[in-house]
């Protein structure tokens, strides 16, 4: 997958291991952010590599969460099994949405997923017998990892490691996919659908498959969320959340899966960092997002990279070096 990505994964792993010790009062805020990051990795595969928009990822997130919650609470299943049922249901629904809308060119997927997102939210709210309605239901069992029950708050560190291990695994899967024949085909579709088709790439099939994979990421994130929080209700699964995920991906930079992680971290932490500003914080938050979208359209991750490259080129010490090389 290339040295850069491998280095990135190693550095991220080290950061994850060290963080609970380095910032003991802070790291647990990254648990929810890690769950968002997992969704955003999947979404960036769809958005950045296949050029398709899903406005229903919060619904797949909900599908994973509710499937895990219902199977473990009502039927006493193991969380490890429930995740797979969530993925299975998500694949079926994503195929049902993706096949008709992705066979057509244009943004039909956005419309279909928007409708699906709304329907899922209504079902989660109104089907009280199944979902517990607006108040949801709790007592969802915790993950049992190698004999350790992950129970907050004492086990925050274990949960943190568990969530971020999932993020790193999610990154690994996405990076493997991108740096392959399949990944090149997806990027080709994004750049020129007709040219890709004429080179032998079945564009509709590829778009459907990447949409299904992307939805599966959200479903896994939902299952993890249910067991980490121990409680589900419709609140975190509204269409506004779908839009939040898209914003995270765009802010982070959608032409790299790392951007999904960066965007989730930045947008997840900004409200925290701005908390001292009290009621001004929403205005500042909006302003920062606006500035990023307007001036760094490639996202913060590539923006920072470009900035470093630019300063290395422009800074005076570089100029002083160059005559030395000619001697």
């Amino acid at each position: 997958m290339g040295l850069k990505n491998l280095t990135g994964l190693v550095l991220l792993s080290l950061a994850v291991i060290v963080l609970p010790y380095a910032l003991p009062d802070f790291y647990f805020k990254l648990i929810q952010i890690g769950i968002y990051a997992l969704i955003c990795i999947g979404l960036s595969l769809l958005l950045g590599y296949a050029g398709q928009i899903s406005l229903g990822h919060a619904a797949f997130y909900a599908l994973g969460a509710y499937t895990s919650a219902i199977l473990t609470v009502r039927y006493g299943w193991s969380p490890w099994l429930a995740v797979w049922v969530g993925i299975g249901l998500t694949i079926i629904l994503a195929l049902a949405i993706g096949i008709p809308s992705l066979r057509l060119q244009g943004h039909y997927l956005a419309m279909a997923t928007l409708a699906f997102g709304e329907i899922a939210f209504v079902v989660a709210t109104a089907w009280v017998a199944l979902t517990g309605g607006p108040s949801g239901f709790g007592h969802i069992p915790k993950w049992n990892v190698f004999g350790y029950r992950l129970v907050p708050p004492r086990a925050d560190q274990a949960i943190f490691y568990f969530v971020w291990a999932a993020v790193i695994l999610g990154l690994l899967v996405a990076l493997n996919l991108i740096n392959s024949r399949v990944g090149r085909a997806l990027r080709a579709i994004h750049d020129g659908e007709q040219a890709a088709d004429v080179l032998g790439i079945p564009t509709a099939t590829y778009k459907i498959k990447i949409f299904v994979l992307s939805a599966a990421y959200a479903s896994v994130a939902g299952s993890i969320y249910a067991h980490v929080s121990g409680y589900v209700n419709p609140g975190p699964f509204s269409v506004e959340h779908s839009i939040l995920f898209i914003t995270m991906v765009i802010v982070g930079g959608m032409r790299t899966v790392w951007g999904g992680v960066a965007g989730a971290c930045l947008m997840g932490l900004l409200p925290e960092l701005l908390a001292d500003l009290e009621h001004w914080r929403f205005a500042i938050y909006g302003l920062i997002l606006l500035i990023i979208m307007m001036f760094i359209p490639q996202g913060i991750l590539l923006g920072v990279r470009d900035l470093i490259a630019w300063s290395l080129e422009k800074l005076p010490f570089r100029k002083a070096d160059s005559p030395g090389e000619t001697e």
């Binding site: 899967v173 996919l177 392959s180 024949r181 399949v182 080179l199 498959k209 994979l213």
Partner: peptide, 16 residues
Amino acid sequence: LVGCHTRGSTGFPGAI
């Protein structure tokens, strides 16, 4: 390499 697409066969599982 995209031009080589029809000369290969790796799918989603193989790539992942």
